[in-house]
Design a protein around this nucleic acid. Structure first.
Lengths: 224, 224
DNA sequence: TCTCAAATGTAACAATTGTTACAAAACAAG
DNA sequence: CTTGTTTTGTAACAATTGTTACATTTGAGA
């Protein structure tokens, strides 16, 4: 357990022994979930910090009609709900469920406060984690603020390329189905837009390998 | 100055005298802006905490084609950029400009760290502020995740009603132009949707007074 | 290799939203 | 009250995206 935790962003910089000492002084529990199990519903009060110690979970926003916008996957050993433990509105913004057989470490808010007071490293880690969450969500927001599908797709492709060393050759890591869910659009719409880019000679798409042929043209076609 | 700051969420719980003492030990500056002045561009590095001490600023996301999604107004004495000072990606997610004649207090990151180490109150205030930011942005994200305009509008109206004591009588505080910007849609589209709701007898709209006549019907029509 | 399930391509049509342009109404200032 | 400006209502049409349905391709196992 401590081995996993020492790799978690919240406990980075602490030795396993130190982590062990800290945990000897606080209340916590672990809980197991099977694939598909509901962990928390959007709107639920958030009273504890949770850390994925095995498996992975996903967070999704669901609207009244049941439509889903996938926000992210959180694999071990990452924490979850860091940004919703403090502040005025302690509610999960997303519905969280298990992607697979998963184990969570659950630490009540009070114990988190204790950890922050006891370990300066934990405190700064926690502060950074909350900031990172805000930044991640901002990125999502920015992404959704692109109003056209072309815009989202162009931005996504170029962002992926930037992450994958700017070679212009992109390897998609998701199915179109998943991408469409991420973009909040229908799958055939995504497929169509991909094809349009291809037919305009802006990209070369074959299966999940995509090559950006014309960056400027892509931006130009997507925006304005 | 200290009088204003004592009302700021970051310095809440501190007496003016305490604030004065803290500021005697740190580096800071104030800067003035005229209406419309650019304060920071989206993507700029964020090295300092800023607090609006006079006037107000607005934050907007701008995409490549120049389309704008307004995120929020920040009036005095609120801080800005709290969630982007720490964490991995210290960049403004939004473009910030002055709504009117405005004065900002600018505190470099290092001094912020000093404040956190010196004043426990400031530390917890700061932590709460960052969490609140994450929660605010999540709310925005949730709002944008409603895919149809009907959905956004219905949600917005019912949320406003909740804030305004559930009377069913809503007083819009913004022009349709501003609302459309907030929703990320074209103004005539918003007007049309409002009229549709009206014609269906779900609401009664006269100018900026709106009466919700049929909550269930509203949700049903908006989210099928 | 063969088979089946999953993923992708595609088309026709519906629904929603954007664009543009102009008229009517509301509002503020003189 | 009058005038000029801002806001709102509205219509016609364009553009985008959703929906549904089916064909085709791909990929993992048997």
């Amino acid at each position: 357990m401590e081995t996993i935790l020492s790799k978690s962003p919240l406990f980075a910089g602490l030795k396993e022994e130190q982590i062990e000492n800290l945990f000897a002084k606080i209340v916590f529990q672990t809980r197991k979930y099977d694939k598909g199990d509901l962990i928390a519903s959007g709107g639920d009060e958030c009273r504890s910090l949770m850390i994925v110690v095995k498996g992975s979970v996903k967070g999704e926003m669901v609207d009244y009609s049941g439509r889903v916008l996938k926000i992210e996957d959180i694999p071990a050993p990452r924490p979850l709900a860091v940004a919703f433990l403090f502040g005025k509105n302690n509610r999960f913004p997303v519905t969280i469920s298990a992607n697979e057989s998963t184990e969570l470490l659950i630490i009540p808010k009070q114990s988190v406060v204790f950890l922050m007071q006891t370990s300066e490293t934990f405190l700064t880690n926690f502060m950074n984690a909350v900031s990172n969450r805000a930044q991640f969500i901002s990125g999502k927001l920015r992404f959704l603020s692109f109003k056209t599908l072309k815009g989202k797709l162009a931005h996504y492709l170029m962002e992926l390329d930037r992450q994958q060393k700017q070679t212009g050759e992109i390897q998609l890591m998701r199915t179109q189905e998943e991408l469409a869910e991420l973009f909040g659009v229908a799958r055939p719409s995504l497929s169509r837009t991909l094809r349009d880019f291809h037919h305009q000679g802006l990209i070369k798409a074959s299966g999940r390998k995509i090559k950006i042929l014309n960056r400027e043209g892509l931006l130009e076609d997507a925006f304005d």
